[in-house]
Design a protein around this nucleic acid. Structure first.
Lengths: 243, 243
DNA sequence: CGAATGGTTGACTATATTCAAGCCAAGTGG
DNA sequence: CCACTTGGCTTGAATATAGTCAACCATTCG
């Protein structure tokens, strides 16, 4: 069914990028002329994935990384007793599946959080392009480095925070990521994921997250809605999220 | 002073590997003949680093990764308010500095936990060898993948554990790493790091770690000493460390 | 020997989880 | 169009858990 769904969703490459909300952050910006042609032939647009739909499962062979054209994705691992733990959120303009590099299989499930369109980059092609173009290789390494860095070392700093600070940290991180794709001055960021997902990701009970968000709202630092959060006092949010 | 210390410690390449405790896990095992010669010329043995000595600092340029021949290392980042957070422990036979790949600078300090000898692999040379030898490239990627995987995804699973379970998880992880380098059946693993470092790494107060270790000891699952831990009931330790 | 550091213990406090109940908005079927 | 259900979210009270503070013990190091 999964495979069938993929086939169903597969869109031709001509023109693959018209609907992309994240074109300025696409790796293709490095290329021109013949190389751009090669790149565009290598990638495939896939979508739409509906909310809750699985993009790939943990344990399936790692063949591709994905660029998120539109939408948002969560990754989650399943413990031996069947508890799901959210490991990351990927937003528009970010890379998905990077955690599979160096592994036979993807280590986590990837699940769409809203209607999502992806640009698939087969890893074999990526390797070929890395060999052919050093600039591409460097750009890719930089992206991967940044991804790993934020996944690992940000968490190292966040794990000793109290619930309220953790939440502030999460909100501020999300804000930075949204803003970097979208230089506008908006302080209201959408939350494509469920609050329960956020709680899980932060290692909090949903009730604790709810209380922490409430506390921040009562302090006048944020305005907490179901599907978005407004960072009223940006400086304060930033301050709270550091030890 | 740092630079000076390095020069002081620099040992000639002939013979670099005689004292290595981790030779079977060295990347050179891939090579033979002329390539082995090239590899041996590329690497440099450095040591001894005394306990507490800084190997590299966060923010200094990333030039090399290191293979730990002997000893053990912790990496730590410093928060804006000056609090140190331990991000990882690296043991004999493991790679240090991997967190710098894709970055201009090392993201964390590396500090020796005991008398430590390293084998330095300049990243420029690594890149050259990757181009020259696909098998090496694959082996390296595999190592990096495993490192990242354990740093990121293991933590994702551990972050929702209670103190006692976190401690069991840490001990079991350490046990697996020690055993994989050293196929003996010993159940007593040395602790090159301070208990305060472990507590920091696990996001616990030192007192909480102490109590958790005590509880495990009282349960008859481990024997808790200052510089080592004996896993009396291995199965139980493993069981406790999963959700 | 005395100081310093790391580790432990106990009492108290802060913090987060659990459980149970209720609310609200969105989707469903009559 | 309106009850009805559902899932996600919130609230309050009771409980479990970890952190803090202060004192103390053990080892190491000068």
């Amino acid at each position: 069914m999964d495979m069938h769904a993929h086939n169903f969703r597969l869109v031709t490459n001509e023109p693959p990028c018209d609907e992309c909300q994240a074109e300025p952050f696409c790796l293709q910006s490095i290329f021109s002329g013949e190389q751009l042609r090669t790149f565009k032939n290598a990638v495939r647009v896939k979508g739409p994935y509906k909310r809750g739909e699985v993009i790939y499962r943990a344990g399936t062979p790692f063949n591709s990384i994905y660029f998120i054209q539109r939408g948002a994705v969560k990754t989650q691992v399943c413990t031996v007793s069947g508890v799901l733990e959210v490991t990351a959120f990927c937003l528009v303009g970010e890379l998905l599946g990077v955690d599979g590099i160096g592994c036979e299989n993807y280590p986590a499930d990837a699940v769409a959080l809203e209607e999502t369109w992806l640009c698939e980059l087969p890893f074999s092609q990526i390797k070929a392009m890395c060999s052919a173009c050093d600039e591409f290789h460097q750009a890719l390494i930089l992206r991967l480095g940044r991804t790993i860095n934020s996944d690992v070392y940000q968490w190292a700093l966040a794990r000793n925070l109290k619930a309220k600070q953790k939440v502030a940290w999460f909100i501020y991180d999300l804000f930075k990521r949204v803003r970097s794709r979208n230089a506008s001055d908006l302080r209201t960021i959408p939350l494509p994921m469920r609050k329960t997902d956020i709680a899980n990701y932060l290692g909090l009970a949903p009730e604790s997250l709810s209380r922490a968000l409430n506390a921040l709202d009562n302090d006048g630092i944020i305005v907490n809605k179901t599907n978005n959060i407004c960072l009223v006092d940006l400086q304060q949010v930033k301050m709270m999220s550091v030890i």
